[in-house]
C-alpha cells in the first residue's frame, strides 16, 4: 500500500516534470520580443534590450529553464512583463477566485450527476433513462459559452434575477457572492453532469447485471438493500476516478466561463497572459493548473485504492 502510494506520487512528479518542460518550451516558441511587447513600439531599443536582459531573454534555453524551475521551487514564479511586478500574487488571487467557482460546481454536480446516473441505470431503456442519458450527452457537448449565453439572456438580461456580469467578488458578503456565482456555475455544471451521470449509469448497470447482484436478490433481500449495500458500493467506485479526471475539463471550462462573465480567475489570467505574451504569467498559470489536476487525480487514486478491498488487501492465500 505504502509502496503503491510512493510509486503513484513518483509517477505524478515525473508527469509534472514533463509538463513543465512542455509548458516552458511552448512558451519559448511564442513569437515576438517580450521586451518590445511590454514597452510598446515607441520605446528605445536599449530599453527593450535592458528589459530583455532582465527577463532572461537570449540566454541558452536550458539555463533559462533551470533558473525558471529553480525559482518555482523557491516559490518565485517569475516577473510579469505585463504588470511589471512578481507573478505570484496574481496567480494566488486568481486561483482563489477560480476555486470558489470550481468547488461550487463540484458541490452541485457530484450528487446530481451520481443520482441522475443511478436513476437512469435503474430504469434502463425507459423514458427516464433516455431523457437523462441523451440530455446529459447533449449538455456535456454543448460548449460552455453557448449555454452561458443562453443562461445570461434568460436569467441575466430578460428576467434579471441574477447579476451579470459577475465581475469581482471582493467586498461582497457570502450570500451575495453565491448570488454572483450562480450564473457562471450553470454552464460548468451542465458540461460535467453528462460525464458523471454517464459513468455512474454505466457502473450501476454493470453492477445490476452482475452475478453478485443476482445472488443478493435471490437471497431475498429487499430491493433497497440490494441497491444500497450490493450495487452502489461497487458501481460508484469507478465514478470517483472519473470525477477527478473531470477537473481537467472543469478548468478548461473555467477559462471560457471566466472570460464570458468577466470573472477574475486563473483561466482569464492565463488567457490575458497569452494574448499579451506575458510568458512568466502564462507559464506559472498553466503549471499551477497542471499541479491542481495532478493532485486531484492523485487523491482520487488513493481514495479508490482505500475503498477497493481488491487493491487494499491484495491477493494472499
Amino acid at each position: 500500500m505504502t509502496r503503491y502510494l510512493l510509486r503513484r506520487i513518483g509517477l505524478a512528479i515525473v508527469t509534472l516534470w514533463i509538463l513543465s518542460v512542455i509548458v516552458f518550451f511552448a512558451g519559448q516558441v511564442l513569437p515576438g520580443d517580450p521586451g518590445r511587447a511590454v514597452l510598446g513600439p515607441f520605446a528605445s531599443q536599449s530599453a527593450v534590450r535592458q528589459l530583455d536582459h532582465q527577463l532572461g531573454v537570449g540566454r541558452p534555453l536550458v539555463t533559462q529553464y533551470l533558473s525558471w524551475i529553480g525559482g518555482l521551487l523557491h516559490g518565485n514564479m517569475g516577473f510579469s512583463s505585463e504588470y511589471r511586478s512578481p507573478v505570484a500574487p496574481f496567480v494566488v488571487t486568481a486561483i482563489g477566485n477560480s476555486a470558489k467557482l470550481a468547488v461550487l460546481a463540484l458541490v452541485i454536480i457530484i450528487p446530481f450527476g451520481i443520482a441522475g446516473g443511478v436513476l437512469a441505470a435503474l430504469y434502463t431503456g425507459r423514458g427516464v433513462d433516455r431523457t437523462i442519458s441523451l440530455g446529459g450527452l447533449a449538455a456535456s457537448t454543448v460548449p460552455e459559452f453557448v449555454s452561458g449565453i443562453v443562461v445570461i439572456i434568460i436569467f441575466g438580461v430578460a428576467l434579471k434575477v441574477f447579476p451579470y456580469p459577475t465581475g469581482s467578488l471582493s467586498g461582497l458578503s457570502a450570500p451575495s457572492q453565491l448570488d454572483h456565482l450562480i450564473l457562471p456555475v450553470i454552464p460548468l455544471v451542465l458540461v460535467l453532469f453528462g460525464y458523471i451521470a454517464r459513468m455512474a449509469r454505466a457502473g450501476t448497470i454493470e453492477a445490476l447485471e452482475s452475478d453478485y447482484a443476482r445472488t443478493a436478490i435471490l437471497k431475498g433481500l429487499p430491493r433497497s438493500v440490494v441497491i444500497r449495500r450490493h450495487i452502489l458500493r461497487n458501481s460508484l467506485l469507478p465514478t470517483i476516478t472519473v470525477i477527478a479526471t473531470q477537473t481537467g475539463y472543469l478548468i478548461g471550462g473555467l477559462v471560457v466561463v471566466e472570460q464570458l462573465f468577466s470573472y477574475q480567475g486563473i483561466g482569464r489570467l492565463i488567457l490575458s497572459a497569452a494574448t499579451h505574451k506575458d510568458f512568466a504569467m502564462l507559464e506559472a498559470g498553466v503549471l499551477v493548473i497542471g499541479i491542481v489536476y495532478m493532485v486531484a487525480t492523485l487523491i482520487a487514486d488513493v481514495l479508490y485504492t482505500l475503498l477497493n478491498p481488491r487493491l487494499r488487501v491484495g491477493v494472499s492465500g
Partner: peptide
C-alpha cells in the same frame, strides 16, 4: 502530461 491540461489550453498555447 498533455492530459493534465485542458484541451483548450493546450490548443491555444
Amino acid at each position: 502530461a498533455v492530459l493534465a491540461l485542458p484541451v483548450v489550453i493546450v490548443a491555444f498555447l
